[in-house]
Design a binder for these strands. Structure first.
Length: 723
DNA sequence: CACATCTGTCTTTTT
DNA sequence: GACAGATGTG
């Protein structure tokens, strides 16, 4: 077995052939090594660019690598290499050969995102006469995803000895898969699985790709899932010229079936493998690194590795205990404003991290109030906007008429008077005649049988789609045409208040189509739709501009910032409750993953690291007392101040401020009426707008002047006092 | 048929 | 506080 080598970056770059595993800690220059390895192969080894396959974790990473290779090996070569995520590369392969599979997929397939999947699953459940409240669509989809990732097809699974529950799952799985094929749609799992099936069924195809890709480079190898591994292993089989880089301690995607055992097993899977360790961190100052090392050392399952700081001493980590989430946001805002005013840092040097997207709201509100330029990565995505999705649905149907899900979405968008009844009748007719919804629409006899008042709208819709499908012009012109000709723009214009915003979004969507480059005009629409489906949140991180960035820790993987705030360090938030619950059931996996996540968060920081937590936080409409995160305790010795000092006044509100016990609060406020004045410790005094019961909960809507606006408060728990 | 309002449910991370 | 689904109203 090959030995483990401690090499400098440049030696790793030029290291021999055959399988190579580079284990590199955070900030050790993984991306640099990968990029230079690519350049080395292209230049010194005279590898033809199209023979190089680079698999990155995000499309952004691929784009950036191309950019850097640009300067290293020239534009022509960098454009010719195959670089992208597993998903986008697989989609590309499938576009060529998917029709070879018997399931009935066609070249022009579309990709269904989780929203689409859920809609489809609801239809499947209805079709099987299963109650969607009893069989949760999301739960079923998760289980199906797990089966797919074990390589189990519906038929394979059925053959097993199944219990009653599992039998239902087997039926649902089979029906779901059949529906996908009928829609000519793939989900994210299929995107990886179908190429594997193709390779198994058609060895000639596999051989072609094996011969084609002489070298394969993989980034973030610790987050590879078993299906991706199977693909890699097959593609790399003949020469095993596989060069992977990763860090076990940064494996944070197990919920997506990533398995860090794959990186741990590399030497067993490839006995010829050389293992190179890069243990010098060039990113962070010593206090940050020492704390991060201390934290991750609490994990049991890991390779022993300590990061050495190439940079010297720096400022101590700063801890802040806020009373509640509002004051946490205030602190972060005040602090980052102070840093910017000091002149040492710009807004673009600062990043605010949190565990869940829901936490972003307060920070964003404050940033807007204070007019601080910022960008929220993820959260509410541009492509999730209704108007954009509606237009995308049109494009989807134009491209792939079998996409009945999107067809149903646009049949009555904008409103044409085709309600649920008409659509249902159409579906039944299609079902009866074994036609797709689209083909049913093309059948005169079916149309004639529709109710009178649906006739004209249906004719109009058909005419519109016909014109759009025959449209000659650029992609941007097509979208512009469908925007106006469908009457969609007119419908948006009816709401004067929102029209300007929405129209602007649509125009930037059209601009995006205008800017979109595809190698072949023939496949432009397909490429564009694929791009939209596979684009990730960080992919849209704006490169330029001095903007404060807000994102989840997951989204921050691979990024670095001079100043980082890690917020919400509370038991239940970070680490997340789910992990804590698993731990109580003797499963330490999830909590260790949370710890790795914390490790990732901390190691994003170059100079300054802030850790914050709140003692109270609103969760599901209730203000709850939050225990300090265990992660803070684990690194207590390395914090600029002692945790205990701040923990001392971590007292429940009731013992600190003389607030009446909950029961009497409700009793007292029970007869609260609109128009009364109340006092809230966080928002000050306000006026009651409305009092009502929501379900079993007494709710008051209170307006607070002074920037806090309208708040919905649960009277059982809100610390309100009458004035 | 379209829109408004109410009610019950709910733990996260994403290609 | 968000969201989906149900129910009520014009």
């Amino acid at each position: 077995m090959a030995s483990t080598l401690n090499l400098a970056q440049n030696e790793a770059v030029t290291y021999g052939q055959g399988p190579v595993l580079v284990l590199a800690g955070a900030g050790a220059g993984k991306t640099r090594v990968l990029t230079h390895r690519a350049a080395h192969l292209l230049q010194a080894k005279k590898l033809s660019p199209s023979r190089l396959l680079v698999l990155t974790f995000t499309n952004k990473a691929a784009r950036e690598m191309r950019g850097r290779l640009h300067t290293l090996v020239g534009e022509a070569a960098s454009e010719k290499i195959w670089a992208g995520t597993f998903h986008s590369i697989c989609a590309r392969l499938l576009r060529y050969d998917i029709e070879r599979l018997e399931a009935g997929y066609q070249r022009r397939f579309v990709i269904y995102d989780p929203n689409d999947q859920e809609k489809l699953m609801k239809e499947v459940l209805a079709q099987l006469d299963l109650d969607a409240t009893q069989h949760r669509p999301r739960g079923l989809l998760r289980q199906i995803s797990a089966l797919k990732n074990q390589g189990l097809q519906p038929a394979d699974y059925r053959r097993r000895d199944l219990g009653f529950q599992e039998l239902t799952l087997a039926r649902v799985y089979a029906a779901y898969q059949e529906q996908l094929a009928r829609h000519n749609a793939l989900d994210f799992d299929d995107l990886l699985l179908l190429p594997l099936q193709l390779f198994q069924r058609f060895p000639d195809l596999l051989q072609r790709y094996q011969r084609h890709f002489e070298h394969i480079l993989v980034d973030e190898y610790q987050d590879t899932n078993p299906v991706q591994f199977a693909l890699l292993r097959q593609l790399a089989a003949p020469q095993q010229n596989l060069f992977v880089v990763g860090d076990v301690d940064q494996s944070i995607y197990s919920f997506r079936n990533a398995d860090f055992q794959i990186i741990l097993r590399f030497q067993q899977d490839f006995p010829q493998a050389a293992v190179i360790k890069l243990e010098t961190n060039y990113r962070s100052t010593r206090p940050i690194l020492v704390a991060a090392n201390t934290l991750i050392d609490h994990n049991r399952e890991r390779f022993d590795k300590v990061l050495l700081a190439a940079r010297g001493e720096g400022e101590a980590i700063r801890l802040h205990s806020a009373r509640n989430e509002y004051q946490e946001a205030d602190y972060v805002l005040a602090e980052l404003q102070r840093l910017v005013r000091s002149g040492k840092y710009g807004y673009g040097d600062i990043c605010v991290l949190y565990r869940t997207n829901a936490q972003s709201r307060l920070f964003e509100e404050r940033l807007v109030q204070q007019r601080v330029p910022h960008q929220v990565v993820g959260a509410f995505r541009f492509y999730d906007r209704k108007e954009i999705k509606d237009l995308m649905a049109y494009l989807g149907v134009i491209y792939n008429p079998l996409d009945s899900l999107n067809l149903k979405r646009i049949l009555n968008t904008p409103k044409r008077g085709l309600g649920a009844k008409s659509i249902q009748q159409l579906e039944q007719a299609a079902e009866r005649d074994g036609l797709s919804l689209w083909d049913a629409l093309q059948t005169p006899a079916i149309l004639a049988a529709m109710p009178k008042r649906a006739q004209q709208p249906l004719q109009d819709f058909l005419g519109l789609m016909q014109r759009l499908r025959d449209f000659k012009g650029s992609l941007a012109e097509l979208i512009q045409a469908l925007y106006t000709d469908s009457g969609y723009r007119e419908e948006l214009a009816k709401d004067e208040e929102s029209f300007e915003d929405r129209d602007t979004y649509v125009r930037s969507f059209i601009q995006a189509a205008e800017d979109f480059m595809a190698p072949d005009p023939e496949t432009l629409l397909g490429d564009f739709l694929q791009h939209l489906a596979l684009i990730s949140d960080v992919d849209r991180l704006q490169e330029s501009g001095q903007l404060v960035r807000l994102m989840t820790v997951h989204a921050a993987k691979g990024l670095e910032f001079p100043v980082v705030f890690v917020t919400g360090l509370e038991e239940g938030v970070f680490p997340h409750v789910r992990a804590i619950l698993a731990e109580e059931n003797d499963d330490d996996g999830p909590i260790e993953e949370e710890r790795r996540l914390m490790y990732v968060a901390m190691t994003r920081a170059e100079d300054l690291l802030y850790l914050t937590h709140a003692q109270y936080r609103m969760q599901r409409g209730e203000s709850t007392y939050q225990e300090t995160s265990r992660f803070l305790e684990e690194i207590e010795d390395h914090l600029g101040q002692k945790l205990s000092q701040t923990s001392v006044f971590d007292r429940p509100l009731s013992t600190q401020v003389p607030t009446p016990p909950a029961a009497s609060t409700v009793a007292e406020l029970d007869d609260l009426n609109a128009g009364e004045s109340v006092y809230h410790p966080d928002f000050g005094s306000g006026t009651v707008e409305k009092v009502y019961i929501s379900g079993s909960r007494p709710i008051a809507i209170v307006t607070f002047p002074g920037g806090f606006g309208k708040r919905i408060l649960d009277l059982r728990s809100a610390p309100l006092q009458r004035l």
